[in-house]
Design a protein around this nucleic acid. Sequence first.
DNA 1: TATTGTTATACTCTATAACTATA
DNA 2: TATAGTTATAGAGTATAACAATA
Lengths: 160, 160
Amino acid sequence: MPSHKGRSAGRQRLPVLLERDELELRTWLQLVRTYLRMERRLERLLEERGLSLPQFDILATLAMGEGITQQELAQRMLVTKGNICGMIDRMETNGWVERRPDKQDRRANRLFLMPAGRKQLARSFPDQHAAVQEMMSALRPEELQTLYEFLDRLEEDIEN
Amino acid sequence: MPSHKGRSAGRQRLPVLLERDELELRTWLQLVRTYLRMERRLERLLEERGLSLPQFDILATLAMGEGITQQELAQRMLVTKGNICGMIDRMETNGWVERRPDKQDRRANRLFLMPAGRKQLARSFPDQHAAVQEMMSALRPEELQTLYEFLDRLEEDIEN
DNA sequence: TATTGTTATACTCTATAACTATA
DNA sequence: TATAGTTATAGAGTATAACAATA
């Protein structure tokens, strides 16, 4: 069982600009490091399936609720509509998703998963899931629950 | 004081692939959302100063310890050496950093901050710091400490 | 007028692979 | 042989801004 006091070679230390022990900043820097480590590993896994992380996110988002518009997708993913347009272009070319014009509002497209997209998600999801389970195993369930609540509260504070 | 139970419009929900309450995955998804929100906000701030987040990271890393090699920088930032080479090119063009050949090992470059780089860091750091402080204010000090420890343990588990 | 989506443009970050110089 | 750095190439993701169609 690893101690959390250990330091390995590549670890960053606090900037010289910080004289005092700045808990907020230290926590943010640790959040970045931890996130990046996990992200890189998950990206590697997805890459084997020919998926980028944003593409996986789009597939997963559509699996949660098909029929959203590109604008809605852009807002959920915190990117611009022009960005989403290009990403959907690529994913539609691959046959993973489909644009269907909205009958009521003819400006809008509704987005749907195609069989190939479902298949991609179904194939890559178990890997992602297993990797996440493994990476999270350093924390006990009650600790995970606490971590989740802390992160949730942080996010709420930001979006307001 | 915001409750952590609230749900706003753009929040994602769990994929349909998940029947049970998967704490690990739910926590990871929340980590992603929280990280992205904070990252976007900090990127906006840096953008006003003409800095990208990776560039800021490099400046901050060098401020922590000048004279590291490109290879060492690549390892700390979890990217390839070719990547670092291009980034240092851009930053050297801007006069922010400098390559100095290592006398002992003539294959290697040692990286140093230039006055303009120090100035960039000194100008952007207070903004970043204040934003981090504000975003982290949803948690009390003892909660921040706990969050830090959890993240640290997670990272250790991954890098081993 | 406002909104949805598209297009054009540009830039950063990222990776891989082949290459040079040095160890 | 192995390592540090460079270069060339490629691609994704991101943004902005101007545009068309529709509301």
